[in-house]
């Protein structure tokens, strides 16, 4: 049995003739919420796409649940939510999730369960295109949670949400981790970093730091994670 849900090693990715990930390595164990933090353009989405197996990879390896990323044996055990909602705007919440549940071969009960989890029961029969941006984002998240995946990959799931909802979603992420899933959650907002069990800071396609929030605060001598990030960038520039 492998302990790591995700093992990225020496990952290089080229997009549009330019290398955007320059040898990324890190592990994600079960039961952990890993925050993938970095400014816009740092390569977060590309890295997440490599983990779910939809990104063409130049070299290096990404293993997920003991198999190469995207392998037939792991598809369906990995939940993925892209930053902009990847659901059908002309179907209702329930119809969307029922379709994805059918694709995954899940029983009907699975749909009601995830609708409940993301707090959309009141809107289940509304057409997704008529929902607010935040609600659409939660439909997207619900689709990623279908079937209780062992690895959940979320690209900026809390962008543009009000603080109350953001709080609720982070509680949900930790709940899922406590149930044994590994989560990889990207964000470009450092204030969210403190909510993660561990952080991988990405900048211009390289890992700047891989540490817990506490380690990061101690190592940089500041309580403010935003400042910590800036200090790391400065140290890197000097080195």
């Amino acid at each position: 049995m492998v302990n790591s849900c995700v093992r990225v090693s020496g990952l290089h990715v080229v997009r549009g003739g330019r290398e955007v990930l320059h040898g990324i390595s890190f592990d994600v164990p079960r039961g952990q919420v890993l925050g993938l933090l970095g400014p816009s353009g740092s390569g977060k989405t590309t890295l997440l796409r490599a983990i779910v197996g939809v990104q063409v990879v130049a070299s290096g390896s990404v293993d997920v649940l003991g198999a190469p990323a995207g392998d037939r044996s792991v598809r369906g055990r990995v939940g993925y939510a892209t930053q902009s909602p990847a659901v059908y705007g002309d179907l209702s919440v329930r119809e969307n999730l029922a379709y994805f549940a059918d694709v995954l071969g899940l029983p009907r009960g699975a749909v009601a369960e995830v609708i409940e989890r993301v707090d959309l029961a009141a809107h289940a029969d509304r057409v997704v295109g008529a929902l607010s941006g935040g609600q659409r984002g939660r439909v997207n998240l619900a689709a990623a949670l279908l079937g209780g995946p062992e690895l959940i990959v979320l690209d900026e799931p809390t962008v543009g949400l009000d603080p109350v909802l953001r709080e609720r979603l982070w509680a949900l992420f930790h709940e899922l981790a406590a149930e044994g899933a590994a989560l990889v959650v990207s964000s470009h907002v450092m204030e969210e970093a403190g909510r993660c069990d561990r952080l991988v800071l990405l900048r211009e396609g390289v890992v700047l730091a891989d540490a817990t929030p506490a380690e990061l605060r101690a190592g940089t001598g500041t309580d403010d994670l935003d400042q910590a990030f800036l200090r790391l960038v400065r140290q890197e520039a000097q080195a």
Partner: peptide
């Protein structure tokens, strides 16, 4: 719309 990418991560 991104749904194709989502489907590509499933057993479909």
């Amino acid at each position: 719309g991104g749904t194709l990418e989502r489907l590509m991560t499933t057993p479909l």
